[in-house]
Design a protein around this nucleic acid. Structure first.
Lengths: 337, 337
DNA sequence: CTGAAAGCGCTTACAG
DNA sequence: CTGAAAGCGCTTACAG
């Protein structure tokens, strides 16, 4: 590998000068600049970013820590983070923790030893205490999980406004004319959505009925089972708000198999707008959660924190929005309920 | 940040000694070792991996370049690569090229400037010429794309044996008693599967009929359309081998909508064993392609290349295997064909 | 505008 | 076993 010194020798100047023409930190005369450029060209010189990182005290790298890539949700966000870091000439170091606190701690520490310039921590990739400790050591970081944990107060957070997602989905069902609306929800991770659901009901003067609140684990199978349970109720609901699309699709499967027609006998709303939602039978009405926007906002915020170390607005919630397809329909158009 | 020098001062020794107790490269007396360890503990010292990388000339980092994470196929492989690199105390740098040659070149160059110790290049993430150039510059690398490109000859390749995947799927259909077997294939990326299909037919004494070869683009929609086209044939096939599961599912959808019962009127085999395959109606028979094994083998090979710089067996093909579910059934059990 | 020198935080022969 | 010294490949005040 050819080094700065090689270039300097060939151009008949000193390493400092070569450095100056490369970084453009200090003006260099046109003549010597040309000589240096020529030498760089001839030697096919590439700056060693490791050495530069050591000298400058910054590495132009970002650590991204996620629970897993198996979940397309995170895969998409990782893709977007990489896109933005790349645009800013940063390099992304990625690691996965599989929701294990010890893995999270280990990865954060290793990344810190590699002197990354900042961290993005998504979902429950690391223990809150470890994240807080990292921040206290002065490492710039952004958390992409909006949970109720008070220890996260004051840290920069970017996430979807899931409370609103719950409200939007439920309110749509109410506007379609439904009163008996069930919810399938995974606790505690989807608690905000449940809260949004409850708020929308109360706002419409509907008292939330605990019997319509069903647990799921975000899987297709759990949605399937929850729908069966709801059907078996003495007074089944007329609509189901599933807190993610997989559970919604599972519920649809159960309903279809039991001859319950959608949306006529039962309306369904999901959350996330995954690719499969549009292909469902019928196509699924859902609340889209713009995860790429979250990823982009988180990355750009982190970059600002690194480069300006400003205190910025510390809670950024990206708004979800409703996508009406064919699992919901105004009731009066149907059977005049 | 506390440095080696800080630790040395506190322990009353020299930096070299501290380095020796940490790296264990050179024996250190129990007494001074204890003093040093104590100082490290008290100062909460963490070695600066950037400095170490510069001094040692190796960074313990690996570059992984993939087309996209949107495709769960790559997401899974990335997850596995990270798992293995992590086990070996390496850090993974990830970047995506979205199948753009210029992006690929840019990323490879930047990673090289960061002095990664080696590269894994998946799919068509980078142009072959750029990959070859990188190898010629002496960078250890592993390619995870088995295509027919002769320029890749001699480079370490790890991939699925897709030729065999084609054979296995087709042979299964033949063994079920089918003779008129169609294929839905995306060219040129799935060409090996087509070859496997043709080989299996010939081996069974069946002359491949070009009219049964249908193009797809790996999407659900293209499988759907191809199935419609096949149904419209004067003599439709009795079985379809779809070169990936998405096209198989699309084909199933088309068949079901047209009252063609599966597997009785038409048998279907897919490739990949994606999560949705098991949930199809009926569950899809498919050829699984163990992508995690590929990722693991590729990473371990790269690590060996880096650390022993041995010339290793240069073409590793992982065997796929058949997963029989309910879209295929022996014909004699059905209608005695 | 350019050079000489010190420094970033480690590692690595080489003496002793 | 331990220390003194040079080096990894850059950057960055500071002179001139």
């Amino acid at each position: 590998m050819t080094t700065l010194a090689d270039v300097a020798r060939r151009a008949g100047v000193t390493a400092a000068t070569v450095s100056n023409v490369i970084t453009q930190r200090v003006p260099v005369s046109a003549k010597t600049r040309a000589r240096v450029l020529k030498a760089i060209e001839e030697l096919d010189y590439r700056p060693n970013l490791v050495a530069r990182g050591l000298a400058r005290g910054k590495t132009l790298t970002l650590a991204l820590v996620v629970p897993t890539l198996t979940n397309p949700y995170f895969a998409e966000m990782v893709e977007e983070v990489e896109r933005v870091t790349d645009q800013h000439d940063y390099q992304m170091l990625l690691s996965m923790t599989h929701n294990r606190a010890d893995e999270g701690r280990r990865h954060l520490e290793r990344m810190a030893n590699r002197r990354v310039d900042g961290f993005i921590i998504m979902g429950m990739a690391a223990d809150t205490a470890d994240v807080v400790a990292l921040a206290q050591q002065g490492h710039p970081l952004v958390v992409s999980t909006w949970n109720q944990d008070p220890r996260l107060q004051g840290l920069p957070i970017v996430d979807i406004d899931f409370l609103q997602a719950g409200e939007i989905g439920t309110r749509h069902l109410i506007e379609c004319g439904h009163r008996r609306i069930a919810i399938i929800v995974e606790e505690p991770v989807q608690h905000s959505r449940l809260q949004g659901y409850q708020m929308a009901l109360l706002e419409a003067g509907i008292v939330p009925d605990p019997v319509y609140v069903r647990r799921g684990d975000s899987s297709f199978a759990s949605g399937y089972q929850a729908a069966l349970d709801l059907l078996a109720l003495p007074t089944p609901p007329t609509a189901i708000f599933a807190c993610n699309d997989w559970m919604a699709l599972g519920a649809m499967e159960a309903l279809t198999q039991h001859g319950v027609s959608i949306p006529h006998d039962m309306a369904i709303v999901g959350v996330d707008n995954i690719a499969q939602a549009a292909y469902a039978h019928p196509p699924l009405t859902t609340v889209s959660t713009p995860r790429r926007e979250v990823a982009r906002a988180a990355t750009e915020l982190l970059l600002r924190l690194i480069n300006h170390s400003k205190q910025e607005s510390y809670l950024t919630l990206i708004r979800p929005h409703l996508i009406v397809r064919q699992t919901t329909v105004p009731l009066n158009h149907e059977d005049g309920a």
